[in-house]
């Protein structure tokens, strides 16, 4: 995916810089960009490590497991067919709680286990499988560590002050995704 994207970006910048006469700027910008990429990655590494350290602690004290338990009733409603199988329900709640805590490395394997569990239901499970995928393509993160690191690196006065806005926007997009899923599902038949 990114390979295609990067090729398109280079081809388009080739074409447009020739068209607009910005060839010198575009040529110089490539190396500036590479340098800034390095600088940027280094500048967020500290904050990234700090957040990962806190997340490791959250994981170790069983916070995600407890959150997963709390989420079960809600998930039973959202995935009634899949929730019949305890293993699938466990994977589902693990996936959502890891997403909430921003533990991306734990969320994907759990999500895949849940998706495989639902896929075993066959055609009847498609709605729930789709809902799971849509839930994962919309962000659920409670602690947007990367954004905070980005903002801190860019010199924001209070890097955390966007957190409320991120929550509200995430919530709206999750509802929109689930609403759109319910709407398009009818349309498709």
């Amino acid at each position: 995916m990114t390979g295609v994207l990067i090729t398109i970006l280079f081809l388009l910048s080739m074409y447009f810089s020739a068209l607009s006469g910005h060839t010198v700027q575009a040529g110089g910008a490539v190396l500036d960009g590479a340098q800034d990429g390095l600088r940027f990655c280094l500048s967020i590494t500290g904050a990234l490590c700090f957040w990962c350290a806190l997340m490791e602690l959250m994981d170790r004290i069983g916070l995600s497991a407890r959150l997963a338990d709390a989420l079960r009733p809600l998930l039973r409603r959202l995935f009634p067919l899949a929730a019949v199988h305890p293993e699938t329900l466990a994977a589902l709640s693990e996936n959502v709680s890891a997403n909430l805590l921003g533990l991306g490395n734990a969320a994907t394997p759990a999500g895949i286990r849940a998706a495989r569990g639902i896929a075993r239901l066959g055609e009847t499970g498609f709605d729930e499988l789709g809902r799971l995928v849509v839930l994962n393509t919309a962000s659920l993160q409670l602690l947007p560590g990367t954004i905070i690191a980005l903002r801190a690196a860019a010199g924001a006065a209070a890097p955390y002050d966007v957190m409320g806005a991120v929550w509200l926007s995430s919530l709206l997009s999750v509802f929109a995704g689930l609403g759109a899923a319910a709407f398009f599902r009818r349309l498709w038949r």
Binding site: S13, L19, S20, A29, V30, G33, G37, F40
Partner: peptide, 12 residues
Amino acid sequence: LFAAIYSFRASG
């Protein structure tokens, strides 16, 4: 990606 996007921006 920074390299690609910077040149993309500079191209106008």
